[in-house]
Simulated scan of single mutants.
Amino acid sequence: MNVPNRSLAQPINTWDGSALLECVAVLPEAPDVVTFSFAAEDGSIFSYLPGQFVTLELPVPGGPLYRTYTISSTPSRPLCLTVTVKAQEGSIGTRWMLDNLKPGMKLKSTAPGGTFTSHHHQAEKYLFISAGSGITPMKSMTTWFYDTGRPSDIVFVNCAKRPSEIIFRETLEHMASRTDQLKIKWVVEESDRFRPWAGYEGFFNQLMLGLIAPDYLEREVFCCGPEPFMQAVREALQGLGYDMERYHQESFQAPTAALAEDYAEDDVIPDEDIKAQVRFATSDVTATCAQTDTVLSAARSAGLNIPSGCTFGVCGTCKIKKTKGDVHMVHNGGITDDDIDEGYILACCSHPIGEVEVEV
């Protein structure tokens, strides 16, 4: 691993997203799953909360593509930052990474962000439930507890198609063998042809939950995976009388309408028949659009590029400063109340009302 050399006499700076990330290692994990390790080009160290994410700018053919990935490393190991990615059918950005990203190459990235972290919901007992590559934030949080020796009772559940597709299996089982505070439970849909399987088999359900963590009502639950999987977990917990105020999930897929409505800031309903105007002050460009258009779509129609990742208010990549006017913004956690108070908006989910000016 070619981590940049540092003299002990040099001051240690914290990476803030301004320096490029240099790929220093590429580690295969499972079929179509790879961990990429990065060091900051300027030698700074990484500080973030376990469970947070970054948005990488990928130089794919046809122009840069922005993709958001949870950090799979832990801040207790600050010299490198890793993301573990799985190429799905039809994926563009992740497939480019698997086929092209090599040690020595450098990428632009946002600083770490996100609120899906055990640091914001401290508890004596946790239940981490994930599927597929949704294991990455759970691994980051678990490793932080393990490295720092913090008292924690963690039941760690991960669901995969088959045993050979379980990500981080050996790493997590090693940690579990060194502490009685971590209990690992694997669930697979089917066994491998030549590998006997003695664990749970089938789809995660209420019966499995009761067997895996009989005291689930006492645990803070974190869940990450495909939306259908998380919906099944939510329904299982609700059906068993779990206090859903203690349930937390992370997803970079479009949230359900019910979840998005929780973040509505007002009762204004944008009207597609009413025109609005967005002035991009830095570029000295003005675009006319409908109220139902977003600031992001107005920028693209005007030939301007605002970096964006998820496009539905989760990742925060498209945060920009609004200097005049009003917008209707329905986000899903990608911006803080403090940012909003300072005039920032998320371009992907902000609809201009009247005349609006932004620093783009």
Rank of each mutant, 00 (worst) to 15 (best):
Y247C: 14
P50R: 02
S37P: 01
S76H: 01
M230W: 09
T55E: 12
G90H: 06
H248M: 06
T94L: 09
A30R: 10
V188A: 04
M230L: 05
K275T: 15
A276V: 08
P270C: 12
V330N: 10
L296Y: 12
F156K: 02
E357A: 11
L81W: 01
A232I: 02
I45G: 01
G225V: 10
L259W: 11
G241I: 02
K321I: 12
M208Q: 04
D267G: 07
P31A: 02
A131T: 04
P103Q: 05
K275Y: 15
K183L: 07
V83K: 09
I320S: 14
E165W: 08
A198G: 06
N205M: 09
V60W: 12
P226W: 11
P214N: 07
L8R: 05
P28V: 06
E261H: 14
D32M: 14
P255C: 03
P11H: 00
L58T: 15
D32R: 13
I154E: 06
C23K: 14
A287M: 05
M175V: 04
K275L: 14
E355R: 13
I345Y: 03
L58V: 15
T84P: 10
V26S: 04
C23S: 13
F38C: 05
D273N: 02
R6P: 00
E190C: 13
W186C: 02
Q238Y: 07
E170V: 05
E359G: 02
P31M: 01
C224N: 15
Q122F: 04
W144I: 00
C289V: 15
G134C: 15
R178N: 12
Q231L: 11
Y344C: 04
V33D: 01
K102I: 13
P11E: 00
F204A: 09
V155L: 11
T115C: 08
T317E: 12
A131M: 06
N332M: 08
A299M: 14
D153A: 01
V314Y: 09
M138W: 09
E190D: 14
Q253I: 04
R6S: 00
D273Y: 04
T143N: 03
I335Y: 08
T311W: 03
G303F: 15
R6D: 00
A176W: 10
T55A: 11
V188P: 08
R246C: 15
E218A: 04
